[in-house]
Design a protein around this nucleic acid. Structure first.
Lengths: 205, 205
DNA sequence: ATTGTGACCAAATACGTTATTAGTCACAGT
DNA sequence: ACTGTGACTAATAACGTATTTGGTCACAAT
């Protein structure tokens, strides 16, 4: 076991720099095409026409590049989810959209960019910062929905908000967490719908 | 990928036979001590004083022996759970005991017999018959509790019983499935309690 | 101060070879 | 029919080695 705790971003040098972007772009393509393991840092260097050493002026490690790509991926998942939620009519609808979209977006990633999905799996099992930030943002979004539902009387108000938010997130984890989701694929989409139903029943005032 | 579908029991020869028991006993000890992979069929043969070939009169494969041991393990988990449930006062209490016990029993297995737990993990990820049977029995037990709760007015009756049973099981999966549970350890016992709370709220009439 | 690199090293990985192991079968004794 | 085995093979794992890879650093150019 290497990195028991949470790992940090680990970037270096100027945050805004065309070379940093080039690295990230090359990494996105290479990782998606050949996978994280089979892409070497020298590959990325060759791709952008610089030396390998120069890459390390912008990233502390290969994993840091992987984290950047992972952050992009899960960022995309979050954006899709937020968009879908924003189109919801009421809190109930938003919660349904939340659960449905985060799952379907993740599944889509799995099928369209399997190699990138593998990075997300690795990131999740090793507790990379990108994934932790992602789950926190998701939980914030979920809490927003819950607040709205509580305010307009759709949801019950007795249970502490924190507990409600956490327990819903745990219950939905098999359909959110990339590691779990892989193992829940054969149950989709019914299981996800049914658990969402259970969650909504638990929120009834 | 080897065994995509569900694998069957795969025993051979007489079902009741002292040698079969000897094999299973030896396997239980060796697997627990050295692990499944590092125990060879010849080891088991030597342990019981017969030749390796004779073992294959009783089991189709090494995996079949592993399945027998795995069946014992999860059988033990189920028995503990059932016992705890039977001591419950009402359906609500039984449901709480159900969730708490299946989790704590599994965690205990993880800490006291890590090597056997690894077999269970392997069995679960490869969908061995023993684990499938286990989850079915657990769901049957859960359904019993739900029926009792519905009959005596503790639980709501609108949602189809099947759906309720499945959705609860899915929601509790991170605390039941050995593969998931490993990844939920740092959340215990709070997360489990809180999800159980959510489940009970969803069952409110 | 910023941009950029070749040379270098320890650690990890790929690879070819050897040694084990799972599983079978023909055969023997009762 | 039942109990039991040694000898055999194909597949897998263990092992040592050669190569690659992640990462650093001193140094050069602008």
């Amino acid at each position: 076991m290497k990195n028991q705790g949470t790992s940090k971003a680990a970037t270096r040098g100027p945050a805004e720099h065309s070379v940093r972007d080039q690295i990230v772009n090359a990494a996105r393509e290479c990782f998606a095409h050949y996978g994280y393991d089979k892409t070497t840092v020298s590959d990325l260097a060759r791709e952008i026409g610089f030396s390998k050493a120069y890459i390390y002026r912008f990233f502390e490690s290969k994993q840091a590049i992987g984290e950047a790509i992972c952050a992009e991926c899960v960022g995309g998942l979050f954006d899709q989810t937020r968009e879908a939620v924003d189109e919801g009519q009421d809190a109930t609808d938003k919660l349904r959209r939340f659960a449905r979209t985060v799952t379907s977006a993740t599944v889509e990633l799995l099928f369209t960019d399997r190699k990138l999905y593998e990075i997300a799996v690795h990131a999740s099992s090793e507790n990379w910062e990108a994934v932790q930030a992602y789950t926190e943002r998701l939980q914030d979004l979920l809490e927003e929905i819950l607040k709205e539902g509580r305010e307009n009387g759709e949801f019950e108000r007795k249970t502490p908000l924190d507990e409600t938010r956490r327990s819903i997130f745990y219950a939905l984890k098999p359909f959110i967490d990339p590691v779990f989701l892989e193992r829940s694929l054969d149950l989709l989409p019914d299981a996800q719908t049914e658990v969402t139903g259970l969650v909504l029943r638990s929120l009834a005032p």
